[in-house]
């Protein structure tokens, strides 16, 4: 996965609460056993005029030319709630998003983001409102800067906001780590845990099924 360090990019405000993963990518847009080819289905229910077609709905903010090439999404509480589908994150990434700002996130979605190089940033609702207002004045000019090393979101004319992120997630994003490789280095500890596990009843390896 691509490392994330610092970006300067167009932000797009989608200030709704409870934006669920069905809205981010409807199930009907998950057409193949694949992590790619999903960007077109992003927000399909809102982005296109009808379900089967691809005619853009001009009322949806991502179809507004002023926000073209947006890489930062600003949204409301509980962003990414609902289904665990990682396709929501794959679709956002493929579309070009690199960071999402929201007051809170669905828990599974949050972890899916960090595992795919998409930075989820938790900021207070009023701070997001302030940033969104400033961005909307002139989206292409008023670009946001996100510095993961310093954990700061800023713009030239707005105050900088500090955000929290766990050291593990920060490390993973900064380095683009594949966490399976990192965890496999702890093979000895995992084996030790298995050997001292006394829950014989939990062990399916030695269980024979009742027929």
């Amino acid at each position: 996965m691509e490392p994330f360090k610092k970006i300067t990019a167009v932000g797009v405000p989608l200030l709704r609460i409870n934006v669920d993963t069905d809205c981010i990518i409807p199930s009907r847009e998950m057409k193949k056993v694949s992590k790619v080819g999903l960007g077109e289905g992003l927000f399909a229910g809102w982005r296109y005029k009808d379900t089967s077609g691809r005619e853009p709905d001009p009322d949806f903010i991502l179809n507004d030319d002023r926000y073209s090439d947006a890489q930062i999404l600003l949204s409301g509480v509980n962003f990414g709630c609902g289904s665990s589908r990682e396709h929501a994150v794959w679709a956002l990434v493929e579309y070009g998003f690199k960071a999402i700002l929201a007051p809170s996130f669905g828990g599974i979605f949050y972890n899916n983001c960090t595992r795919n190089g998409l930075l989820p940033i938790i900021l207070a609702e009023e701070d997001i409102a302030l940033l969104a207002g400033w961005v909307a004045e002139n989206p292409q000019e008023n670009r946001l800067v996100i510095d993961l090393v310093r954990q700061i979101v800023s713009g030239p004319e707005v105050v900088a906001f500090h955000f929290d992120i766990s050291p593990q997630d920060k490390d993973m994003l900064l380095n683009g780590f594949d966490m399976i490789d990192v965890t496999l280095q702890r093979e000895n500890e995992i084996t030790a845990f298995e050997q001292q596990d006394r829950r014989i009843w939990a062990n399916l390896g030695e269980t024979q099924l009742i027929s």
Binding site: S84, E86, I108, N112, R115, M179, I180, T183, L184, R186
Partner: peptide, 20 residues
């Protein structure tokens, strides 16, 4: 608890998950 597909891969490969 529910997880994403990448986390499911992680659990199948390592027997574990890294969790807060």
């Amino acid at each position: 608890f529910g997880v994403g597909s990448t986390e499911a891969e992680h659990a199948m490969a390592t027997g574990c998950l890294r969790l807060e």
